[in-house]
C-alpha cells in the first residue's frame, strides 16, 4: 500500500487538471443542473439494468469531485475514477445531444483520462499502442516494408478481377489521399481492396502514402493530447508532402 501510494503525485494531478481545465470544461462541470435527463440516453445505463451509477451526469460528477480535492485523493478514489472513465464511457456524445445545456460529457471524460495518465494509470495495451505510433508511425507496429508489400499484394489480387486497377503509392498532387486503420493491413487486407475497387470504378485521382497512412488515433482515447497531436501530424505531414487536395479516412 505504501509503495503504491508513492506513485501518486498530487502536485502533478493538480497541475494537470489546472492545465486541462478549459473555459468550456469549467462551465460544464459547474452548470450541470442534475436533472437526470441524460440517464436513459446512455447505452451503459441501459445495458446495466438502469444502474444510476452508469448515467452520464454521475460520471461527470465523479470527475468534478476528484478535481475539487485538488489532487488529495486516495488510491481507491483514483482507481474508481479510472474504472469509470475507461470502462464506463465510450465518449459517443449521445448524452450531449439530449442534454438541455448541451454539456459535453465526452470532453469531461477525456480530460479525466488525461488525469489518470498523469498518475501512470493507463490501460496496458493502450500504452503499447501509443508507443507503436512513435516507433513505427502506426498502431500495429507494421514496418514500411510490410505495408508496401501488403499494398502490392492487394494490387495483384485485384488485377485478376479488375485488369488495370492499381494502388498508386506516393503519387504527388492527387485529389485524394486514402488512409486506413492499421488493423486493415495487419488483419483484414481485403478491406483495402474493397476501397480500391470503388476508387478504380469511380475513376478517382487518388493515392496512398508510404508513411503517415494510419488514420487511427488511440492516443486521443487516452486523453494524451500531446501524443494525439503527434499522431495526427503524421497524416498531415504525408498529405502536405504529397500535395493532395484532401484526406479520406477509412470507415
Amino acid at each position: 500500500m505504501a509503495e503504491k501510494a508513492a506513485e501518486f503525485n498530487p502536485e502533478v494531478f493538480k497541475k494537470t487538471s489546472d492545465e486541462k481545465m478549459s473555459a468550456r470544461l469549467k462551465m460544464w462541470l459547474e452548470m450541470c443542473a442534475h436533472c437526470g435527463l441524460c440517464a436513459d440516453t446512455c447505452h451503459y445505463y441501459l445495458a446495466n439494468e438502469q444502474d444510476p451509477k452508469m448515467m452520464p451526469a454521475y460520471k461527470a460528477k465523479k470527475v468534478l469531485d476528484a478535481i475539487k480535492k485538488k489532487g488529495k485523493i486516495d488510491e481507491a478514489t483514483l482507481n474508481s475514477l479510472y474504472e469509470t472513465v475507461y470502462g464506463e464511457c465510450t465518449m459517443c456524445r449521445r448524452c450531449t445531444m439530449f442534454c438541455p445545456f448541451g454539456i459535453d460529457v465526452a470532453s469531461i471524460i477525456s480530460m479525466a483520462r488525461g488525469l489518470c495518465v498523469s498518475q501512470g494509470k493507463v490501460p496496458e495495451n493502450l500504452v503499447k499502442v501509443i508507443e507503436n505510433y512513435f516507433a513505427h508511425g502506426n498502431q500495429m507496429a507494421l514496418t514500411q516494408e510490410d505495408w508496401i508489400e501488403t499494398l502490392k499484394w492487394m494490387e495483384e489480387e485485384l488485377q485478376e478481377e479488375l485488369p488495370g486497377a492499381t494502388i498508386p503509392i506516393d503519387k504527388k498532387g492527387a485529389n485524394l489521399l486514402y488512409t486506413v486503420n492499421a488493423r486493415e493491413p495487419k488483419f483484414y487486407p481485403m478491406d483495402i481492396a474493397h476501397a480500391v475497387r470503388v476508387f478504380h470504378i469511380a475513376g478517382e485521382d487518388w493515392t496512398m502514402s508510404s508513411k503517415g497512412w494510419d488514420d487511427t488515433n488511440l492516443a486521443m482515447f487516452a486523453g494524451d493530447l500531446k501524443s494525439a497531436a503527434y499522431v495526427s501530424q503524421l497524416v498531415r505531414d504525408a498529405a502536405e508532402e504529397l500535395e493532395v487536395k484532401r484526406v479520406a479516412i477509412t470507415e
Partner: peptide, 28 residues
Amino acid sequence: TKLSHFLMFFVSRAVTGMEFGRRDAPSW
C-alpha cells in the same frame, strides 16, 4: 451556483451547437 445557467445556458448551447454543427450534426 448552478443557477448561473440563467446566462451560461446560452453560452453552452452556442459552443456545443457549433461543435456539433461543424460536423453537420444537429445537437437537438
